[in-house]
Design a binder for these strands. Structure first.
Length: 560
RNA sequence: UGGGGUGUAGCCAAGUGGUAAGGCAGCGGGUUUUGAUCCCGUCAUGCGCAGGUUCGAUCCCUGCCACCCCAGCCA
């Protein structure tokens, strides 16, 4: 048989529904964001789940904006969310809707409920309603308005709609059970008065439906078969089902809850994310350090890697905190395959090759991708003066340090073996230059010597390299769960951004947005979508390469 | 003292009566002109705890414990 991956519990439910012919075998899902903020990695899990599941079963997915609370919501967010979903790689085709598309039907459903005597207009104040609701352990009590006649409820509700009352004066409530252990069933509010114009329906309405009322019915109107949401809505399911039953919708979607994604060292709380943006802690919603989709896009995370990540983490009902390493693994795997290699030096240290002619520039051949020869080669200029990484030189190096040290030899990637003859320092004792000699017989590919050295380092030609600003990002927070810290500002990692003046090889001079590169031995990079120009290049580090040396250093430290 | 949900390795996650998949991380080794990649090996006598049923229990039963969510006219 097949060795298909194990199916998560949602797919198992759908398997059964399809084979039993429920919903006529159809599968229709929806992703229902409220347009009041930007999407983040947590939403990506839901988007991937909803779109992938429907696609697997030949169904379709709605992108439905849950815009039932004007004032908190805006078109700006609608546009941003659409761009994010599209970027993630999903296509809702013509299934773009808004809860507000159904305001007429929703209103009619409310009247149906009133007519059946299972909804009433309450005239208690918000505070009174809260008091009447009871507590987690104490039953609530009935509102004195609970037994208004059907006629009076119709009259009141119509006058609410007509704008005869001020905000908060009345509210439409379902008549269920004020003593229920499930607080959502203690006569939940269905409609409230809001004299605010709506981004879509303008001033047509001054009453707006609540989430619980609008959501399930919208699902029913759209023919959603499986309404997938996060765990905190499990308590709402009895209400969801009650509403469909009472309105007697011809179509009955099924709500299924799964656990939301928590990513270690990342923030997925809309409120706190907003705080960082508004207080200027980050540059905006698209700050590359944020786990927002806009931030990850600007950072250079490939959407395919995010999709892969969402698939790897699975779907269950268990609370979880996924380690950043899982995401980084998906990113490196994608980028390692896709990205051409280049050389760039983050923190340049000058080297003069004392036995190399000053007026010569050699063109050396470098592979664009050692693992994919079909990607060809490029020429890299080489001369007497080059830059190497400061970290690739150590004056007092441990034995296992296979890079440059006084008197030591190292291979320059795609070039020659050099030996460090002299270390030049400034008055402060800082190393500012190395004098080295190269071995002409060791040129890559054509070398007549088959001499081997332990280490290979990257470099750029001092004369030809391009100066570039490179932004080295690290995790934004120093604690695994910034979402649970009262003041997120205290959890910030002070080193989440380091800006360096790098030197990059000339082949990178005409790099354009959207193309990722591996800077050999350093990491994966792309140009910044906002600030990069050819005249003054700005690059973002997407993710580092895995660092085996860091591990060795760590072990050495522990061994001491 | 209410209602709902969840407990399988450091982090995820299959398995749900026949003797613990897989991924990430870690550890050990090999290849390597990227200390990357790649390759090989290793990593739960154990499935929240305690009883019970059974030839046999992560799975069934009973009791307990821990953690998460719910008292918006937010979603």
């Amino acid at each position: 048989m097949s060795d298909a991956p194990a199916r998560d519990f949602i797919r198992q439910i759908i398997d059964n529904d399809v084979s039993s012919g429920k919903h006529g075998g159809a599968v229709v899902t929806r992703f229902p964001p409220e347009p009041n903020g930007f999407l983040h990695i947590g939403h990506a899990k839901s988007i991937c789940l909803n779109f992938a599941v429907a696609a697997e079963f030949g169904g379709s997915t709605y992108l439905r904006f849950d815009d039932t609370n004007p004032g908190k919501e805006s078109e700006e967010f609608v546009a941003a969310i659409k761009a994010d979903v599209r970027w993630l790689g999903f296509d809702w085709q013509d299934h773009l809707t808004h809860s507000s598309d159904y305001f007429d039907q929703l209103y009619a459903a409310a009247e149906t409920l009133i007519g059946k005597g299972v909804a009433y207009v309450d005239s208690l104040s918000a505070e009174e309603i809260r008091e009447y609701r009871g507590t987690l352990t104490q039953a609530g009590k009935d509102s004195p308005y609970r037994d208004r006649s059907v006629e009076e409820n119709f009259d009141m509700f119509r006058r609410m709609r007509a704008g005869e009352f001020a905000d908060g004066e009345h509210v439409l409530r379902a008549k269920i059970d004020m003593a229920s252990g499930n607080i959502n069933l203690r006569d939940p509010a269905l409609y409230r008065i809001r004299h605010i114009s709506h981004q879509h329906t303008g001033d047509k309405w001054c009453i707006y439906p609540m989430y619980d009322f609008a959501h399930g019915l919208s699902d029913a109107f759209e023919g959603i078969t499986h309404s997938l949401c996060t765990l905190e809505f499990a308590d709402h399911r009895p209400l969801y089902d009650w509403l469909l039953e009472q309105v007697d919708t011809p179509h009955r979607p099924q709500q299924i809850e799964f656990s939301r994604l928590n990513l270690a060292y990342a923030l997925t709380s809309k409120r706190k994310l907003n705080q960082l943006v508004e207080e200027g802690v980050v540059s905006g919603w698209d700050d590359p350090r944020l786990a927002s989709l806009a931030g990850m896009r600007r950072r250079g995370y490939p959407p395919a890697a995010i999709r892969d990540f969402c698939q790897r983490i699975g779907v269950t009902k268990k609370e979880n905190i996924i380690e950043m390493a899982v995401l980084e693994n998906s990113i490196r795997e994608n980028l390692g395959e896709a990205s051409e290699r280049r050389m760039a030096v983050m923190k340049p240290l000058k080297i003069v090759l004392t036995n190399y002619a000053a007026d010569i520039t050699e063109q050396l051949t470098a592979q664009n991708h050692p693992g994919r020869p079909e990607l060809g080669t490029r020429e890299v200029p080489f001369g007497r003066e080059i830059y190497v990484e400061r970290d690739d030189f150590m004056e007092d190096a441990p034995r296992k340090f296979f890079r440059l040290k006084p008197g030591g030899e190292v291979r320059l990637r795609y070039a020659y073996i050099i030996r460090c003859d002299e270390v030049i320092k400034d008055d402060a004792g800082e190393v500012i230059e190395l004098r080295c000699s190269y071995d002409p017989d060791t040129r890559s590919g054509t070398g007549t010597s088959d001499r081997k050295v332990k280490g290979t380092i990257h470099w750029v030609s001092a004369e030809h390299a391009i100066a570039a600003e490179v932004r080295l990002y690290d995790r934004l927070f120093k604690v695994p769960d910034p979402g649970s810290v009262d003041d997120v500002l205290t959890a910030l990692n002070p080193n989440s951004l380091e800006i360096v003046s790098a030197r990059i090889e000339p082949a990178l001079g005409d790099a354009t947005g959207g193309v990722t590169y591996q800077f050999e031995r350093v990491g994966y990079f792309c140009t910044d979508s906002e600030d990069h120009t050819q005249g003054s290049p700005v690059w973002n580090r997407i993710v580092t390469l895995r660092d085996g040396w860091a591990k060795i250093e760590k072990q050495a430290l522990q061994g001491q």
